[in-house]
Structure formats: C-alpha cells, structure tokens
Design a protein around this nucleic acid. Structure first.
Length: 155
DNA sequence: GCCAACGTTGGC
DNA sequence: GCCAACGTTGGC
C-alpha cells in the first residue's frame, strides 16, 4: 500500500528547484539526525510512496510539490564523512545510525499550497506540520490529507 | 530578530 | 534515572 509523507527543507539549503535541477530530478535525502525521523526513513518509507516537499523558513511557507520514493532506506554516508556538516563520529560503516532515501520529483506545483491555505482547511487540522511546536522534518500524511493537498494544488 | 517548543547532553 | 542547561528549529 502506498503511503504519504512530508519532508521539510529550507530552500536556502535545498529547494524544490534544486531538486528539479538535479540529475534525473532525483536526490538522496541526507542529513536527517533525529531518531524519530530516522526510524521513518529506515523502516517505514517504501519505494513508490509519495513525499510532499515543504519549504520551511521561507517565503512563502508552502508545500512546493511532491516526489516519489525510488530507493528505500539505506545508510546516510554523510554521517561518515568528517568534512560533512552532518558528520557523526558515533556512526560507522558496520553500524550505521543514520539513514536516507532517494526521491524523484514528480510535480512542482504551479501554485504552492501555502501554510495559510493548509491552516484554513478543516480536513487538515490534524496534520503534523500544523501542530504547535512540531519540528519533526519527516512526518506521515494520511491518505485523506494527501487527497486534500492534491486538490488544493489544482485549485 | 525574537522566542516557544522541543530533543539532546551531561552532571549528579 | 532525573532534570537543568543548552542548542536547534521554524513560525512570527
């Protein structure tokens, strides 16, 4: 069964346009250093799942498009790279702590679905991203929520 | 730039 | 194992 997710990214660091410009519009989602998000990446996110791409710390704050998971969880090699900002000395090739998936851009929304719009939609009031204080950068999205978001993107 | 919320760290 | 201190996130 196909599941839905939402990944946050600061466009100043990596935007949906950066993804669009990547080879095959595909990237590995590296640098996640939070255990709850790691567990999703390692255990729950499956090939074929849909990922909404959210721009945080941005203008506008919005879901900018969506992607498809084309490779399931595998070790995040940036954790082993001493020169990388996300280097973690506790991780090793034998015992990787951090994981990532590969995603491919499917569609960049013509009109991004802004946070304001999401907030006004009663069917989305339980979305993780709308909960006060939620900082988790990888969250699950229900099928109903996903359908509403898709509809809003076409509106 | 502010600051609330949260996860992590480390002393005890 | 508790919890205060700290660093980070991210909307405003």
């Amino acid at each position: 069964m196909k599941n839905y997710w939402l990944f946050k990214s600061e466009p100043a660091v990596f935007s949906i346009d950066d993804l669009d410009a990547s080879k095959n519009a595909t990237t590995f989602w590296d640098g996640i250093r939070n255990y709850q998000a790691r567990n999703f990446l390692r255990d729950s996110i499956k090939a074929g799942d849909i990922v909404f791409f959210y721009h945080s710390n941005a203008d506008p704050l919005a879901i900018a498009g969506y992607c498809k998971v084309i490779r399931e969880g595998y070790p995040d090699h940036t954790a082993l790279d001493k020169t990388n900002a996300h280097y973690d000395p506790a991780s090793s090739e034998q015992n990787p702590i951090w994981f990532m998936v590969d995603i491919k851009l499917i569609k960049k929304f013509i009109k991004p679905v802004t946070l304001d719009i999401l907030k006004r939609e009663s069917g989305l009031k339980d979305m993780k991203i709308l909960q006060r204080g939620n900082r988790l950068s990888v969250t699950s999205v229900s099928k109903d929520e996903a359908q509403i978001i898709m509809k809003l993107a076409k509106a």
